[in-house]
Computed example of a mutant assay.
Amino acid sequence: MTTITVSTDAKTELVDITDRVEAALPDDATGTATVFVRHTTAGITVNEAESALLGDMAAFLEATVDDSGWDHDRLDDNADSHLRALLVGPSETIPVTDGRLETGTWQSVLLVECDGPRSRTVEIRVSD
C-alpha cells in the first residue's frame, strides 16, 4: 500500500491524479489497484480530465446539492460537502498490468474535492 497527498485550491474541484497513482504502482504490479480517499468530504472517480469538463463536473455537483438548509450544518456547516461526496464515492478499482493502469484512452483518475481547499490523503493498494 502507498499513500499520496493531494492539495486542493477550491471548495469544489477535480484534480487529475492519474500520473501520481501510476507512479505509486510497483513496476511488476498486475491485478487491480484500489484508489481510496480517506475523507468523508472528498471522492475518487474515473472520467475524462479535459479542463472544461472538470469545471462542468464541479458545477454539476454544486447545482445538484444545495449549499445550505441541511440539519448537519448546525454542527460544522458542511453538509453539502458530505452529500456531494456521497454522489461520487470514496474509491475506484482499476485493472493494472505490468505496473500500468489499464484505463481507456480518455479515462483519468480524479480526486473530487467537495470541502476545500484542503490536503487529502489517497491510498493506493494493489491486489492480485
Rank of each mutant, 00 (worst) to 15 (best):
S127M: 10
I94T: 02
L25V: 00
T30G: 00
A85T: 12
V37Q: 00
D115V: 05
A49N: 04
V65E: 04
L87N: 03
G99L: 04
A23E: 13
D115T: 07
M57F: 12
P117T: 09
E50S: 08
V122A: 11
F36Q: 09
A24W: 02
T34N: 07
V126F: 02
I4L: 11
E48W: 01
T18H: 00
E62A: 11
V6H: 09
P117L: 04
T121R: 03
D66W: 07
R38C: 14
T40K: 05
P95Y: 06
I4V: 11
D80P: 05
L101W: 09
R84L: 01
G31T: 12
V15M: 01
W106G: 02
A33Y: 00
Q107A: 01
G43M: 07
A24L: 03
D16T: 13
P117Y: 13
V37C: 01
T5K: 15
D128G: 14
Q107K: 00
L61A: 01
S68M: 10
D27F: 13
F60K: 06
A85Q: 10
E50I: 06
R118K: 15
L75E: 05
L53C: 04
H72K: 06
V35N: 01
A59M: 13
V15P: 00
D27E: 15
I124H: 14
T41D: 08
T105K: 08
A49T: 01
L61G: 02
D67I: 03
I17V: 05
P26R: 10
P117G: 07
V109Q: 02
L54F: 13
T97I: 09
Q107I: 00
T93I: 09
K11H: 10
G89S: 07
N47G: 06
T121H: 04
D28T: 08
T45E: 04
F60S: 12
D19T: 14
A79W: 13
D19Y: 10
A52C: 12
S108M: 06
L83Q: 11
H39S: 10
L53D: 08
A85W: 09
M1E: 09
G116V: 05
T3L: 03
V6N: 15
W70A: 08
D80T: 14
R118L: 07
R20A: 15
A33S: 04
E50L: 12
V122G: 11
D80G: 15
M57N: 12
V15N: 00
F60Y: 14
V21F: 02
T97W: 10
V35C: 03
S81I: 10
A42S: 07
H39C: 06
E48V: 04
D27T: 13
S127N: 15
I17S: 01
V35W: 01
A59C: 08
I124K: 06
V35Q: 00
L83H: 14
V46D: 12
D77E: 11
V37P: 01
A24N: 04
L61P: 00
S91C: 03
T18L: 02
V35E: 00
L54E: 04
D16K: 13
T64R: 09
S68L: 08
T105Y: 09
S68A: 07
